[in-house]
Design a protein around this nucleic acid. Structure first.
Lengths: 213, 213
DNA sequence: TTAAAAATTGCAATGCCTCCAAAGTTTCAG
DNA sequence: CTGAAACTTTGGAGGCATTGCAATTTTTAA
């Protein structure tokens, strides 16, 4: 399927806008940059910016939206004998151990996080994304566990696993902002994951365990 | 100590503004009411509104800020042999069983919650308050457990207890919005608390347990 | 009674965001 | 290749939250 000229240009424009905006935000802070400046720097009109991004926050968090189904994917892809929690913990450990950018373990993540820390509206948006992710996971768990409509376990387990994820991300973000190196933070984050696993209840750890074949 | 005329009038004006605003929000929704309308309805200038409330959201959530230290108080007031989690669960059960307005079990709470559900900015603000509460609890736990500076347990346990609280409040809010009666919701909320307790790990349930005298 | 302190107000301005209609660009059937 | 349909970009007007400032009014306290 050939991709038309129009589609390609749109994707480029979108990416360009996000890049230009992110650059300015990192340099001067979220609130100190106006949409008008971004439009000018990207050589388009203000209205065009709004054609691509519904709000200023989306210019910065465009990529972060990719994590809404991360936990769901981990759960769906769990292996034999693995529970939902096992899969989530295992996958997170893989990312952390691999010093993966997907969990914020990259140079430059500190600059990214500092922008967020400086703007409440960005924190709020990030929380909103987390909520979507939790809801997504809830649905997934309900399906994967074959839960009855009235069963509240999926909601609670989703809440627990979301907590693990957000706590991990908050920890990594905080340490990176504090100026520590990716390898160091990776090691400590693994300990944190151990601590959290140790804190979870049996019911959570065993939920939706997949049978052996 | 005599309270001057000025102080009394300020308190009255503040209350009046909050009341007028809340009435309008409940009637027409948060976004559909402008600050100018509120000012006019309260017979003051727009600037006066801002003299009392830093942002529009504060006009509605003024009272909700009282919960930032709720969990901390519960923990500090725990009884002999009670852990932090025990105290939180016990106190929450008391509130729920007593059909207390402090946990949203009151007629009219549905209208209140509907306003919130209709405005993302209010949800964001509520989340922000929850974050403050969690931080507050974290400090309290650190003190009460005599934890070392590097000890991560207080952060994790605070996260778990905050989760219990916010999940409970979300549940009650949701059921009240669905039009159910306070007594009914109270009963179900108690079951939810049982379910959550059942889901928590031993480490959480035993953290900061107070010794017998 | 009066001068200082504090509260209220009007006015101007900034910035996010929406709506609308005009103008330019790309697609595609004929 | 051509013209109409579909889509994108843009300028302009305007609404609304929020801020800053200076003038005015009210309250306090000496």
């Amino acid at each position: 399927m050939a991709e038309g000229l129009r589609e390609r240009k749109k994707r480029q424009t979108r990416q360009h806008l996000s890049d230009v905006a992110t650059g300015l935000f990192v340099e001067r802070g979220f609130d100190a940059v106006t949409i008008a400046e971004i439009a000018q720097a990207a050589d388009v009109s203000v209205n065009t910016v709004y054609n691509y991004f519904p709000a200023k926050e989306d210019l910065f968090l465009d990529r972060s939206r990719g994590i809404v189904d991360r936990l769901s994917r981990y759960v769906r892809g769990r292996e034999e004998r693995e529970s939902a929690a096992d899969a989530v913990l295992r996958e997170l450990r893989i990312q952390v151990e691999g010093v993966s950018p997907t969990v914020g373990l990259m140079d430059g993540y500190a600059r990214f996080m500092r922008v967020i820390e400086g703007a409440d509206s960005l924190k709020a948006r990030l929380w909103h994304i987390g909520q979507e992710a939790q809801l997504h996971l809830e649905v997934t768990l309900r399906e994967e566990a074959g839960a009855e409509p009235g069963d509240r376990a999926p909601v609670l387990v989703a809440g627990q696993l979301s907590w693990v994820h957000s706590t991990l991300m908050a920890y990594i973000g905080g340490e990176m902002v504090a100026g520590r190196g990716t390898d160091e933070v990776s090691r400590d984050a693994l300990v944190l994951l151990d601590d959290m696993e140790d804190l979870l209840g049996e019911k959570v750890l065993n939920y939706a365990r997949r049978a052996a074949t």
